[in-house]
Nucleic acid binder design. Structure first.
Lengths: 196, 196
DNA sequence: GTCTATACGGCGATAGAC
DNA sequence: GTCTATCGCCGTATAGAC
């Protein structure tokens, strides 16, 4: 692993856990195993490093959503349920990249808002589109109601995921996964065809 | 308004917007209209000030939820809908106290976690209980399904609120309120009695 | 590219006069 | 309680040798 890759990997974890202000260049250097000034051979300053990390994370998040939806299953309900569980599980397990994404989408560092929100908004859109396709399939196969549009359903799905993400700080992995089951039941009742 | 009240009011806004590390004692003093050392006549240090603010915010949040549910309406659906809208509206309007609550429940300052999560967890519980009572009424009056328990429904409600809260950074007030409508529709379909 | 040494600013916090 | 002055620390960032 080259130094630059190590810098990226270390930064992701530290930023995700300690936030932007809470992560010093010294701590990053420590984790990488080099001295602080050596970082500046790779990045002009802390902001440039953070922006580079963010770009990587944004792409990774969309890819994560894509993979989580790539489930072999007999019906759309199972696909959505498995994706939902994977999502929550990785969040609750404190997966650094997902935590990073959630944290800085909500609270971008002061001064970097304009540089970040554009790409964040784009990736939100992409992730939601991937889900919309699955939802639309479910509507075609008569598993999901057509009284609601696919976009609304996809939005709700992500709201629930993010709401559960918020809980990971004060609740344990088991508790969050248990809450996720409750939430899923309400969600599925909300979108399924009533006759079922 | 006495100095101490001014300190509290100023701190809430600054912490909510700029976070703990991002809010210096100097900035708080500036906003209050005094000099930095004068703050130390009222609080031993920054942590003590923050903890005092948090205590106030935790109580205020429960009170906010209580009030939002105190709606004169013919049916439970309307009560829940109005409460939901009030909640989202105040979030999207960047109401400092709700933002403060959401921010630091999810990302407590390093070193203060143990001191905060206990009271946070308690207030979460209280707020959810208030909602559970309303949901239970809806179940009795046969508006809400009894296939789901009131706790699950209340949890889902707050997940949706928090999920929508996350959006306030990158979307405008109008967009968030529009999303809230979509989300509400899925939620209501999920908890209503099917025959309706 | 990595190091040691260092500059410089902002931070939390204190001393002591009024 | 509020002020001016100041301390000590740690943050980002740079200079310059190897």
């Amino acid at each position: 692993m080259h130094t630059k890759e190590k810098i990226l990997a270390s930064s992701i974890e530290l930023f995700a856990v300690n936030g932007y202000a809470g992560t010093s260049m010294a701590k990053i250097a420590d984790k990488v195993g080099i001295k602080k000034p050596s970082l500046y051979a790779h990045y002009k300053n802390k902001e440039a490093l953070f922006i580079d990390v963010t770009k990587k994370m944004v792409d990774e998040y969309v890819e994560f959503v894509r993979k989580s939806l790539d489930v072999q299953a007999l019906n759309i309900k199972t696909v959505l349920y498995e994706s939902f569980k994977t999502h929550v599980h990785d969040l609750a397990r404190n997966d650094a990249s997902i935590q990073f994404y959630n944290r800085f989408m909500q609270y971008p560092p002061k001064g970097l808002e304009s540089e970040l929100t554009a790409s964040m908004e784009q990736s939100e859109e992409k992730a939601r589109m991937l889900l919309e396709i699955v939802v639309a399939k479910g509507q075609t196969s008569k598993e999901i109601t057509t009284e609601l549009n696919a976009k609304s359903i996809a939005r709700t799905y992500f709201c629930l995921i993010e709401g559960l993400a918020n809980e990971t700080t004060i609740y344990t992995l088991e508790e969050v996964e248990h809450h996720a089951e409750s939430v899923w039941n309400v969600f599925w009742r909300g979108i399924r065809i009533n006759l079922e």
